[in-house]
Structure formats: C-alpha cells, structure tokens
Amino acid sequence: MNSKAIIVENLTKIFNGFTAVDGISFEVEKGEIFGFLGANGAGKTTAMKMLCGLSMPTSGSAMVAGFDVYKENESIKKNIGYMSQKFSLYEDLTIKENIRFYAGIYGIRPELITSKTTLLLEQLTLEKEANLLVKQLPLGWKQKLAFSVAIFHDPQIVFLDEPTGGVDPITRRDFWNMIYDAAAKGITVFVTTHYMDEAEYCDRVSIMVDGQIDALDTPGNLKSSFQAGSMDEVFLQIARKAKRSE
C-alpha cells in the first residue's frame, strides 16, 4: 500500500456547461490534516462530493483510500466519514439513536456499538443528554456530535465541509481539538473552512479559485512565498483573482 490517502488527477465536474471543478490535481498523505480552502462558489463542495462518491466526476481520475471513485465508490464509503455543510443528523431522533443508527448501517457489531457509545458520550460529556432529541441541542453540540458520528466507524479519511460554520470561538477550539485527536489516531482529515486561523492548524492547505487549485503548500511556506504575515493575507491575495462570483 502506498502512503497516499487521496490521489486526484485532472478531476473535473461540468454541470450543464458550467465547469464547477476544472481539472484539479493533488495528493493527500495518510494521517495528514489537509485544508481545502476557497471562496464561496470556488468548487470546494463539488470536489469533495466527487471524492465521497456523492457526485459523479465528468472526467479525470481519483483514488480515495486506495479505491477508484468511478468503479469502487461503495468501497470508498466504507472507509470514509463525511460531515456535510448542512447539519444532517436526524433531529427527531435522540443523540443515542442517531449514533446507533449510523453505527448500525456501517455494520458495527451491536456490543461494540453499546460500548463505543458509552465512551463517546463520556468524551463529549453528553451522558445526561443522551436521550434528548437532537433538535433540542445547541448548534455547537450538534456539530461536535455530527463529527463524532462521522468518525464513529473509524474511517481512514474524514471529509469535513465547513464543520465550524456559525459556531462560537470556544466550540471552534474544542472542535479542532477533536480533529487533532482524530488525526492522532491516524485518520486523515480533509477539511474545508472559511476561517483562516483554522487554516493555520492544517498540515497543508490548498486554495481553490474558480474551480482550479491556485496554491498548495504548508501554511508556513505559503506565507513566505506570498510574503504575507498570515494565512488571511495569503487567501486575500489569491482569492481576489476570482472572476466568477456565487
């Protein structure tokens, strides 16, 4: 096995003549925290959906967790976790029921579900809320829960689409601690964000502009090559070139 979690070559998605993702190529190492940045409408979510097997690429190739996105997308799904931009756990189920349901469809053994659920609720300090309906939780907790559910089946890679959107700074810090914990367990993290301080936490960062990747490097290297003091400045310099708007 090679050490790459994701290998993407010339991946393209065209919707009715509109090129949302325009021939992107990159590689993500195993265990890496890979920041996938870009302005709204740059094509981040579309690219991510192709890698998760939710969207069929128009052309190009991609291997995720060692599987081909065209032919082996169901095998990919066994090995990845995904947290969408829109909160998508069941609001009319309790915390425990949501965990149980997703664990169940990933085929985790019932005894293991029970023991892992207890452990997880302890970690999240949600033992008392375990039987509350998810709709009763504040957004920050919902996001933490969604992330925990996304990695409950110990995937090789987890895809996070703007996981901290609309969340307060303290919860954001907690959330990134959870991401670090996941990475420490060997899970590759593929994350999109609009917060440039979060970009600094990534091992490597790519910046997408108009469907293409314009820059890809460690935050440190990016800052020095753009002679910028922060990732914020780097992002502004690159994203200003964008011709298309939302």
């Binding site: 097997g53 939710l54 799904k77 756990l89 609001e91 990933y106």
Partner: peptide, 17 residues
C-alpha cells in the same frame, strides 16, 4: 429536503435495504 439523505448516501448502505 432536510439534507439527511446526503449523510445516508455517503454510507455503504445498500439501495435495496
């Protein structure tokens, strides 16, 4: 509409199931 289908579709769930 709620968006939960996306979370389902990203699991290895079988269509028949």
């Amino acid at each position: 509409e709620i968006g939960t289908i996306e979370q389902i579709n990203v699991t290895p769930i079988r269509k028949t199931h």
